[in-house]
């Protein structure tokens, strides 16, 4: 369950990064459709946070420790909303670039999360 979510969040984050990166390349600020995309990725991140906490509460222990896992979960959930808000007040290509950077960081966090949880084992 959590492995599938991790892969889903990572893949959508990369797609969002490419999309916003393309907008930055075309010298465009983030638009409504981008924000809908960010909302989707953010929602997945929050679902992942909740599922992760439920799993921890259910007695599962991540390979590399609970504190580390929780910190990465929270960081992952905050990445896209944070950079999304920053792009709201930066209506240039650099706002798009900021969201793209946030999404790339999220994808990297997902790789680490997979590792911390002990991907493939549960």
């Amino acid at each position: 369950m959590i492995d599938a979510l991790t892969i889903a969040v990572g893949a959508t984050a990369l797609a969002l990064a490419a999309w916003c990166g393309f907008a930055a390349y075309r010298d465009e600020p983030t638009k409504d459709w981008h924000f809908i995309g960010m909302a989707l990725v953010s929602l997945l991140g929050i679902v992942q946070l909740v599922v992760g906490i439920v799993q921890l509460a259910g007695g599962h222990t991540p390979d590399k420790g609970t504190a580390l896992f929780l910190a990465y979960l929270i960081g992952a959930a905050a990445c896209v909303p944070g950079t999304g808000f920053m792009s709201l007040s930066e209506r240039t290509r650099w706002g798009s670039a900021t969201v793209a950077a946030g999404a790339v960081v999220l994808a990297v966090l997902e790789v680490r999360l997979f590792d911390i949880w002990g991907g493939g084992n549960g």
């Binding site: 504190a67 580390l68 910190a71 960081g75 990445c79 944070g82 950079t83 920053m86 792009s87 930066e90 240039t92 650099w94 706002g95 670039a97 900021t98 950077a101 946030g102 960081v105």
Partner: peptide
């Protein structure tokens, strides 16, 4: 902090959080 600076603020912010939480955890644990 605007224009290209916005991207720098985001990256520096992320690195602050990453480095701070990582070292705090390691220093304590």
């Amino acid at each position: 902090g605007s224009g290209p600076g916005r991207l720098l603020v985001a990256l520096y912010g992320i690195f602050t959080v990453a480095a701070a939480s990582r070292s705090l955890y390691q220093l304590i644990a």
